[in-house]
């Protein structure tokens, strides 16, 4: 749920990166953190296990600029991708304004992508959201690896609603900001519509 603060003159929104384990959600955030000017970003919080797998969430606040004298800030969260952390994923979706679904393009991760996508729909449903009405985009990550599924195939399976989709290699940053910008725009347009 976005938070409009007339006193501090701020508009705050929440974006969640969703996707199967090891698809690169945290890597997206790390790249954004690395490339954002110090004054436009807050601390990146990572709640991970000793083996650097996300345990609860990663969190990165960024400031995008001003609209009509209001600072526009986005809080970026990732969910833990591993299947058994489902209870945590549900909590992180609370109050979400926009979603980036990160898919792992490798052939042998297709089942995991589909499972995670269905899990996202289910968890959104439980929170009273509907994927048809919430701003979201899809990122096909790891395009730099061999053995990836063609985008047309991925689209057929994962992008049934025809939302904006991006090819990415989050490891070197390809497509990371393009994906973020796209969902930020969708969220702001949705906010304006609801006003």
């Amino acid at each position: 749920m976005s938070f409009i603060n007339y006193s501090a003159k701020e508009i705050n929104c929440k974006i969640v990166y969703y996707g199967p384990g090891l698809c690169g959600k945290t890597t997206n955030l790390q790249f954004i953190y690395k490339k954002t000017r110090p004054e436009a970003k807050g601390k990146m919080v990572t709640l991970a296990t000793e083996t650097e797998r996300t345990l609860f969430f990663d969190f990165l606040p960024i400031a995008l600029g001003d609209i009509k004298g209001f600072k526009v800030r986005f809080h970026l969260y990732t969910v833990p991708g591993q299947i058994f952390y489902d209870a945590s994923r549900k909590l992180i979706l609370k109050g979400v304004d926009g979603i980036i679904f990160v898919a792992d393009s490798q052939v042998d991760r297709m089942d995991a992508n589909m499972e995670s996508f269905d899990n996202m729909k289910l968890n959104l449903d439980e929170q009273g959201y509907n994927l048809d009405n919430i701003p979201y985009v899809i990122q096909y990550n790891k395009r730099d690896l061999p053995n990836v599924v063609p985008v047309a195939e991925l689209n057929k399976v994962l992008n049934v609603n025809g939302v904006p989709e991006f090819e990415a290699a989050a490891f070197d940053g390809t497509g990371v900001f393009e994906t973020l910008k796209s969902v930020v725009k969708l969220v702001l347009i949705e906010l304006k519509k609801g006003a």
Partner: peptide, 10 residues
């Protein structure tokens, strides 16, 4: 539908 915004007034 995303919930309506939480608003803080002065």
């Amino acid at each position: 539908m995303p919930q309506s915004p939480f608003v803080m007034y002065d």
